[in-house]
């Protein structure tokens, strides 16, 4: 491809992506506008009066607590996913377990299940176990989103690692467990990170489990908080968009840090 053509295509690409991501720009920019400017006709593409009052306003509200809850719920859910999925995927990849293919099938199918189908039964079960209005309820429920994805992705990865690697380790006097911890885990770290990040995104984005299991607002994540804030802030869209921007920020930061691995991992985790 000629240099010139490459540049023309790059510019066309930038235009396409800018148009596509305009809603995100509009969200961020609205957050920096004053209330009066939001309703101006014609709308301003950049705040004439750049201000951070909206961020201050929502921070003085409950956003801090919601943010903390989101971190706790998504963080714990990610931990649960990794603790379950990494050893299980390794087992499925390495050991002659009866019914491996039917287990993989179960993971594939559960990945496609709508939350609504398990919502009511989980509500009743959690109610009987006294787990409603605790962090445990959304943590356990959102972990079910990450587990199948991670097992499918990691098993494919582990299967691809040559067995000789562990065998060499055991000749050096490593036990099976140490070989797993010191040889397999380090070389799988990028894939494990992808699974962790995706599981974190799944849990971070959850709305339905949290609003169903936790009526106690103190335990709400950002998604539930912002959904509820629509009623409270009404048409104060600058405040709502500041709230939205804060909710999106962590996800975008993680994505930027892991971008290359994530894009590859997403494909292999969702198709297989």
């Amino acid at each position: 491809m000629s240099k010139r053509k490459s540049w023309v295509l790059s510019i066309v690409g930038i235009v396409i992506v800018t148009l596509f991501l305009f809603p995100v720009y509009w969200m961020v920019i609205t957050a920096f506008k004053a209330q009066t400017e939001i309703f101006r006709t014609p709308p301003t593409l950049f705040p004439q009066n750049f201000q951070i009052d909206s961020f201050i306003a929502v921070m003085q509200g409950d956003v801090g607590q919601y943010f903390l809850n989101s971190v706790i719920i998504a963080g714990l859910a990610t931990l649960v996913v990794l603790l379950l999925a990494v050893p299980s995927a390794y087992g499925l990849a390495r050991f002659p377990i009866k019914g491996v293919s039917s287990m993989m099938l179960i993971f594939l199918v559960t990945q496609m299940l709508p939350a609504t189908v398990v919502l009511t039964p989980l509500f009743i079960v959690f109610n009987n176990l006294g787990l409603l209005n605790t962090y445990a309820a959304p943590v356990l429920a959102t972990a079910t989103l990450g587990v199948p994805f991670s097992v499918l992705l990691l098993r494919t990865f582990f299967t691809g690692i040559p067995k000789e690697l562990e065998e060499a380790a055991s000749i050096d006097g490593c036990g099976r467990l140490r070989a797993f911890l010191q040889v397999i885990i380090p070389i799988s770290l990028p894939s494990i990170l992808v699974c962790g990040a995706i599981s974190f995104f799944f849990a971070w984005g959850d709305l339905i489990f949290s609003i169903t299991f936790n009526r106690d607002q103190e335990l709400w994540p950002l998604t539930a908080g912002i959904f509820n804030a629509v009623g409270r802030y009404g048409i104060e869209w600058n405040n709502l968009m500041a709230f939205a921007t804060i909710s999106v920020l962590p996800v975008i930061i993680i994505f930027v840090l892991l971008q290359k691995h994530l894009v590859e991992g997403l494909v292999s985790g969702s198709v297989k």
């Binding site: 992506v17 991501l21 971070w204 998604t223 912002i226 959904f227 909710s247």
Partner: peptide, 19 residues
């Protein structure tokens, strides 16, 4: 460019819906 388009998929759906 293809990578940063993924942002729309990453944003929690609740936020996108509100936006």
């Amino acid at each position: 460019l293809r990578g940063i388009m993924m942002i729309s998929w990453l944003i929690p759906m609740t936020v996108t819906a509100l936006l």
